[in-house]
Amino acid sequence: MSKENSILKINNLQTSFFLEGDNEVKAVDGVTFDVPKGKTLGIVGESGSGKSITAMSILKLIGHPGKIKGGEILFNDQNLVESSEKEMRKIRGNRISMIFQEPMTSLNPVYTVGQQISESYSIHQGLSKKESKKKVIEMLKLVGIPSPEKRINQYPFELSGGMRQRVMIAMALACRPELLIADEPTTALDVTIQAQILELIRELQDELGMSVIFITHDLGVVAETCDYVAVMYCGKVVEYADVKTLFKNPRHPYTVGLLNSLPRSDMDQEELIPIKGTVPSPDDMPEGCRFAPRCPFATDLCREKLPNLDDIGDAEQIRCWIYTDEWDGDPEVKVYEPQK
């Protein structure tokens, strides 16, 4: 991994939720990954894999009863874990922005679109309402909202889901952030709108030269939009690779499972194979590899000991015993066989 060019580098991030009776749920348990400058990193995983919590941790928006327990979040060499709330506020919406899954509920219903976007300018650039108005209109134009002069006076309820998500994007990009975190931005939208929004994010990324973290459970979206991929399972990254490698040569059995359960246009599939079993519940975590109970290749070693996230190749990392010297199963095991 080319470390000098990372805009964001996360090391061993741990975020837990502390429930009643000293019950700790480790939602993010030692996550490590890099976001190369100007590129898009996809974070993939099922719900409950900790991908959204990771995103919220980056902006330190984890509220009670959650807490970042340890690790580093290096944003241009500034460790956000150590940063004060005041320092974080200067970063949020200014240098790192976030858009969310639910455009329907993510806008404040009692303020107009214009008021909500211009707030970013007044917070981070100290602009007055008049000064920011032109910028707001510009921004709305940029995200492809027709007749923005009229739209700025509308309330969220007057807009469709797709339009609201465009407003969210305009709001997030208002201050031209260096990093945009998009947490399943298209999940709640119609398929046709989804494609438009994805296209929009990609265009804006080129135009503004920002880096993007794209959180999704949809590998199809990853293939279309991302340069790098981190696959998460149960609060841990299990595989990190560039997108081509990941799709051509997936290594982790979980990644393979995800790919096999995905309809692909680039090859003939006889059938879609779902991953067996279900995600373990947080209070019943397996001792060894988190994926061992569902893994077709699991051995005693997998069930007993947790593998590390090891570098493999230039810019790839994998958390699986199969690729280590200690592997006690079939040395010739083929994790992935492309279907022809």
Binding site: S106, I123, M171
Partner: peptide
Amino acid sequence: SQDYIRTARAKGVK
């Protein structure tokens, strides 16, 4: 606890 409050926080609002 609403989403739009989260949005405001993500914007850097005090």
